[in-house]
Design a protein around this nucleic acid. Sequence first.
DNA 1: GGCTAAATATACTCGCGGGTAAATTAGAGC
DNA 2: GCTCTAATTTACCCGCGAGTATATTTAGCC
Lengths: 217, 217
Amino acid sequence: MAGRQARKNIPQRASGPALWASVGARVRDRERKRDAVIMTAARAFRERGYHNTSLDDIASELNVTKPTVYHYVENKEQLLFECFRAGLKLIMDGIEEQRESTTTGRERLAAVISRYAEAITSDFGWCMVQAENQDLSPAMSRKVKALKSEIDQGLRSLIRAGVDDGSIRPCDEKMTAFALAGALNWIAHWYRSDDQLAAAEIAHRFIELFEQGLQPR
Amino acid sequence: MAGRQARKNIPQRASGPALWASVGARVRDRERKRDAVIMTAARAFRERGYHNTSLDDIASELNVTKPTVYHYVENKEQLLFECFRAGLKLIMDGIEEQRESTTTGRERLAAVISRYAEAITSDFGWCMVQAENQDLSPAMSRKVKALKSEIDQGLRSLIRAGVDDGSIRPCDEKMTAFALAGALNWIAHWYRSDDQLAAAEIAHRFIELFEQGLQPR
DNA sequence: GGCTAAATATACTCGCGGGTAAATTAGAGC
DNA sequence: GCTCTAATTTACCCGCGAGTATATTTAGCC
């Protein structure tokens, strides 16, 4: 069939469509396939936006048809949520990681910023940032809000810790956390993966700016 | 008719639906009406998002039918663009305003930040931030990109000026501008107009943070 | 090699919403 | 009061895309 033939010619990106590329190579690991669906969706959402990406699009990028996608995920909203959660987890891990650290609050905050930048520049970055309440059902919206709030609280408590240990100048922790999160989240809007600038480099410059400030010392 | 009666009961918000509220009060000024359409769209987009707002929604908020909206605006995309432009103009004005100022670069930058925050918290703020290329035709996308770039260049040149006159510590102006714009744009994501926090207050805290930095001096 | 369950595909439904053609109403000028 | 234009409405079209009912294939298992 023409269909079959066409499928073989699809370029095989890492960990994505390759899973389904040839019938013989199909792996039966359900988890893996589900992850591939989510990953592909994340990339598609990032490139074309949530509303401009149909499930048919995602399916065809996976060399599969729409009902197959529905076999791994309840609906489109859930798909967005999974992308969101995957990205958010990267950040949460970064924050968690610093819990047992014994360095100053400022240093721990800097470490979290680095991980945050890493997460935002990942395939899931865009979804994390764009998963607005507007596109979600009330129930989902609540979940997303709660998760986002965890990140916010994590940042604030690091700032507070820094103020307490003297490594951070006393400041409005809420506004500071918002400014930080804003600058970081915004990366998703301008970052292109083919950019020369690596996440680590961006994080480094941001840390310097936020720590030192614009005014000469 | 029941339709007419219902219209009279619509609450009349400032400068919006009131224009059409009663037949007798209809103003013939085309400009004014067009502006009302744009304003109403901006509010709706902010509340429910671009894709979740239909032109029927906007029309009905104006106590009018969809074709009337089309009488003032070519299509939905154009409508988003107009909202975007209206918001952007506020910022451009702020930058322009500082061109003839003779103060230091850092002070001028602070002034622009204030105006920026003001613009972002306005009804048009959300549209400005959300008018992503993804939802726009290639032609529109180019226009939006060009306008956004103007803002970016404005910020960078202020930073450069500050570095030159010694009021700003030498830094990567591109990353600094991105961080600033990010923090400011992000306001649109969390700001609610009924918030106690006024734009001026937010701007003030942001300026302090960006100027002084987190590290104690 | 036949049985069963999971995986995938075919072939639909259906509503929403952008956009429009054609009629109707309002109003300015005479 | 008539006419002509601008403003507005009624009543549509139509495509896209989310979601699904049903058939078919695949693969593990005895």
